[in-house]
């Protein structure tokens, strides 16, 4: 590795800049050392997250047997499935409305509003939702999972919207024109031409929304009612007490799921290009 860093080249190449390789390596070390350490200690036999006592899968077994973990993981999944489903549907419609219609006055403002949750600090959205939902709760008396799903849907929309819109913008309008020319009504054009070509984008959007919903902490923590812990908020709660490698085990599983989903997302996007 050091040989690589010290390489001296006299041949000029625009793609080669001194120091880039070392900077890149340092960045990777920064990013992945903590995660790697966390994963290693998930397999620790002892009770500590800092002292290695040998290899074991006991914390995975323990996490699997923990009713609270199972309960919150299930809740996380339910919320993520509903939130990604609803947000993707809304995002698809929004993407079509912003790319497949005549350009209208204030179109840029619409883009900005759709993408607003990406820019506004999460804590602001969380507090706003907390106050608003508290109001709704007193008026209606409803305190179910619906609030959490709604909150997640809200911040998932821009994440689902971006890949769908990117895909739509890459699709030539001429194909829809050709379908209309060949006697397809607007609905049939959408169903037989636009939608099948857009599908990889929709899947990518849904997966991104799913992952974002799955690991949200701030907004969930603020919006959830008592006993509505999702996996991330449960873990946060655990950290306040005794920390065992069980947390590492859960995190490792969560990381694995995220990596699998993001890999699928990448492969889908690549295939469609």
């Amino acid at each position: 590795m050091f040989k690589l860093l010290k390489r001296k080249s006299f041949r000029f190449d625009i793609r080669h800049q001194n120091g880039f390789t070392s900077i890149a390596i340092i960045c990777f070390i920064f990013l992945y050392t903590p995660i790697f350490t966390m994963m290693v200690y998930a397999f620790n036999q002892g009770d500590s997250i800092a002292l290695w006592e040998g290899f074991s899968l006991r914390w995975f077994v323990s996490a699997w047997g923990n009713e609270q973990v199972k309960d919150s993981a299930l809740r996380s999944l339910i919320v993520a499935i509903f939130a990604s489903g609803i947000s993707t549907t809304v995002a698809t419609m929004a993407a079509i409305a912003t790319t497949r219609t005549k350009s209208f006055r204030g179109q840029n403002i619409v883009y900005a509003i759709i993408n607003q949750p990406l820019m506004v600090p999460e804590i602001v959205t969380g507090v706003a939702l907390l106050i608003f939902f508290a109001l709704v709760k007193t008026v209606t008396g409803y305190a179910g999972l619906g609030f959490l799903i709604l909150a997640h849907t809200a911040f998932c929309i821009p994440f689902a919207y971006l890949p769908i819109r990117a895909r739509l913008e890459g699709m030539d309008l001429i194909l829809e024109t050709a379908a209309a020319d060949l006697y397809a009504t607007p609905w049939k054009t959408f169903r037989l031409v636009t939608f099948p070509l857009l599908f990889p984008g929709i899947i990518a959007g849904a997966m991104l929304a799913f992952v974002i919903s799955l690991d949200n902490v701030v907004i969930t923590e603020l919006v959830k009612s008592a006993g509505q812990d999702t996996l991330p908020t449960y873990m946060l709660g655990q950290l306040r007490r005794a920390i065992t490698p069980e947390i590492n085990a859960i995190s490792t599983v969560l990381l694995a799921i995220t990596v699998v989903i993001l890999t699928l997302f990448y492969l889908l996007n690549r295939k469609s290009e």
């Binding site: 030539d172 001429i174 194909l175 024109t177 050709a178 379908a179 209309a180 020319d181 060949l182 006697y183 397809a184 009504t185 031409v193 099948p196 070509l197």
Partner: peptide, 20 residues
Amino acid sequence: YPPYKRKVNTVFQNYALFPH
């Protein structure tokens, strides 16, 4: 009339075939 109600068809400059 909208295009899908006209008994005329078009051959487009870059063909516009459905890739799927």
